[in-house]
Design a protein around this nucleic acid. Structure first.
Length: 662
DNA sequence: GTAGGGTTAG
């Protein structure tokens, strides 16, 4: 067993570790530079190839290696500095970028633009202002600088500022217009996006695909389709017009409209033929095929997905990964493994798909095997494996891996933290949960799901006031899960009035309850002995909200009315059930019969239980005791005989029986 | 090496 105190102690240390050194110091690698001498003839070629090397390393995310090369260069030009700066900018390490920018001997337009872009695209205090500051100070601004400002403001939701920049530009190019259209769409202003799209003096393929993609993000799928039909031919034909079509195919797929996606996919060759001589020529590319696979995968039509996949003459890594994920999502890990074995160069994403696939179906050994063997892990790899342990209730494994992850220098994100919060909930370990809560506060901006996990954790651990604090702090940013977690927390900890009070508030605020809400509400009624209220809530479920009661709701209502002595009503309820009553339902009835000494009905309930759970001794024992209490010794003896005949041994504890009789 | 657009994993 894992000692919780040890875990807490270890976590506290690791927390400090994460807090004080979130990112490993860049390793400088002097061996990565060839040690031949730099003659004047080879100087420029060396400079060129080293610059290329830096940009390659930066592109592949190997920033510390790039820095190593950079530091060891004898001669650098502006491109060397700019490449290095771009690496830091891409990672959002503006401090490091700024240091280089300040140190570099000569800055060109690209250097300034890089810094401006880094600052203004960063969500963070003061960054946008600093970007603006540099923009204002910049000696010779080019079109890229202006466009950077537009898209930066747009990314941060400040379309008013973006517009001001746009309006003060003397010369705009197509990118300026595209950035405005994209900005409006990103901020949900479809009307103005349309206006600007129509006002554009010229449009290129990017204008069209950006517009289409933005419309789709705003759930304007049909508008997007119309735009494509209207402008798709007319516009100067560029091969990359297919981008826009690919977007729409994927958009259809995302919303389950596979038929339309397929239609568009099939039409592309015809669109391409329209302007056969000269313009308007484009054809399906690998992304079109991949998107089509994805559509079928989303629609859980794996056979069709495979058909597309098999028809492809050229596949890229995304084709393979999408197809594999299709098999993973349909729990066909055999075929997924088969494809994984066949694919040319599986990348981290491929490995992650396999890890999460096996974890999802509960094969932790296989998941772990893939996880251990993968050549390169990323945050998703760790998260998938940790989530796998958590979902399969291997909490010890989850915590162990989480610890290893922190030790490996990987910084947890909301996915990690949400998993380990669930671990705390599963272990009902308040101390662990509080530690994770602190980590949450330091690491992420809490969103609704994370707050919900916190509410669940605190309420499950009995810290109902802490749960309520989080709940109240969420203000308007609650969803139905938040309400369910809080109401459920109250109901399961004996705060029935609070549970029902909160439920009333929820209804007043027009939050639609779910079947889970009603389980808690009925539970509260049951435990508070509120018979009439219970009946009323049960009825309102279907009459007011159209939620058909499930077996859990019936079980609770049977418990409510049964315990109140309304055994006939309880039996009628069972007979009226649209689904098969389960052990919980019959158990509730049996418990009620015991309290109210109704041996006849008890026998019915007990026999049903014997059928449903042939191994369990509980119904026999209960029935025996009831007959004995009633002095019906013949019947009691009969039950004992049945027990012996069926080879049932008495075992302690029956969870479904009324707790007061346990 | 800098500005706008398409497909895959938790």
């Amino acid at each position: 067993m894992l000692n919780p105190n040890v875990v807490v102690c270890r976590l506290r240390k690791l927390q400090l570790l994460v807090h004080y050194c979130p990112i490993l110091k860049p390793k400088t690698n002097s061996n990565s530079v060839p040690s031949f001498c730099f003659g004047s003839a080879s100087k420029s070629t060396n400079l060129y190839s080293l610059n290329k090397k830096i940009s390659h390393l930066v592109r592949t995310g190997r920033l510390s290696e790039a820095r190593g090369v950079f530091d060891n260069m004898k001669h650098r030009n502006t491109v060397s500095w700019n490449s290095m700066i771009s690496g830091y900018v891409k990672r959002g390490e503006m401090g490091n970028a700024r240091k280089l920018f300040d140190e570099m001997p000569e800055r060109d337009t690209v250097s300034w633009n890089l810094m401006i872009s880094g600052y203004i695209s960063c969500r963070g205090k003061g960054y946008i202002e600093e970007g603006r500051n540099l923009f204002d100070k910049m000696p010779e601004r080019d079109c890229v600088s202006w466009n950077t400002m537009i898209s930066g403001y747009a990314k941060n939701g400040r379309m008013d500022e973006a517009l001001r920049i746009f309006n003060s530009m003397r010369e705009r190019n197509v990118v300026s217009w595209n950035a405005m259209v994209t900005g409006f769409l990103r901020n949900g202003d479809v009307a103005r996006a349309i206006e600007y799209f129509e006002r554009m003096p010229e449009r290129d393929a990017a204008s069209l695909s950006a517009f289409v993609s933005g419309l789709i993000q705003n759930d304007e799928l049909d508008k997007a389709a119309r735009v494509l039909l209207e402008f798709g031919y007319k516009d100067e034909g560029r091969e990359d017009l297919v981008h826009a079509y690919n977007t729409l195919i994927a958009g259809y797929g995302q919303r389950g409209r596979v038929g339309e996606a397929r239609h568009l996919f099939d039409q592309i060759p015809f669109y391409g033929d329209r302007g056969k001589k000269g313009s308007g020529r484009f054809k399906r590319n690998v992304v079109s095929w991949n998107s089509m696979i994805m559509c079928y995968v989303k629609a859980e039509d794996i056979a069709s997905a495979r058909e597309i996949f098999d028809q492809m003459t050229e596949r890229d890594i995304i084709s393979w990964n999408t197809m594999i994920s299709g098999y993973v999502h349909s729990s066909n890990l055999e075929e997924a493994s088969n494809l994984f074995g066949k694919m040319p160069n599986p990348d981290t994403l491929s490995w992650n798909t396999m890890v999460s696939g096996f974890a999802e179906i509960g094969s932790l050994e296989h998941a772990n095997d893939f996880f251990r063997r993968m050549p390169q892990k990323n945050l998703v790899s760790w998260n998938s494996m940790i989530a796998g342990y958590e979902k399969n209730e291997n909490y010890k494994g989850a915590i162990k891996l989480f610890t290893q992850m922190l030790l490996a220098g990987e910084k947890p994100d909301r996915h990690t933290l949400s998993s380990v919060l669930s671990v705390s909930t599963g272990l009902v370990d308040l101390h662990l949960g509080m530690q994770i809560h602190q980590l949450v506060a330091k690491t992420v901006i809490p969103d609704v799901p994370i707050n919900n996990s916190l509410i669940t954790m605190y309420s499950r651990c009995g810290a109902i006031n802490e749960a309520r604090t989080i709940f109240d702090e969420m203000k308007l940013w609650k969803d139905v899960i938040s309400w369910n977690a809080m109401i459920g927390g109250y109901a399961s900890h004996g705060f029935f009035e609070e549970a029902l009070e909160l439920f009333k508030l929820m209804r007043r605020l027009n939050v639609r309850p779910t079947y889970i809400t009603f389980i808690s509400v009925l539970n509260a009624c049951a435990n508070a002995g509120l018979v009439e209220e219970g009946r009323k809530q049960f009825k309102s479920m279907s009459s007011e909200y159209g939620i058909e009661p499930r077996v859990e709701h019936f079980a609770t209502l049977v418990d409510i009315v049964g315990r109140h002595g309304q055994l006939e009503e309880a039996m009628d309820l069972i007979n009226s059930m649209p689904c098969e009553p389960d052990a919980a339902v019959w158990g509730a009835l049996l418990g009620a019969c015991r309290v109210h000494h109704n041996v006849e009905l008890a026998r019915v309930a007990a026999e049903a239980l014997m059928r449903l759970e042939p191994e369990s001794s509980a119904p026999y024992v209960l029935l025996y005791n009831m007959y004995a209490d009633a002095g019906q010794w013949d019947n009691a003896a009969e039950v004992r005989m049945m027990m012996e005949n069926n080879n049932i041994r008495k075992q302690p504890g029956y969870s479904w029986v009324d707790s007061s009789h346990n």
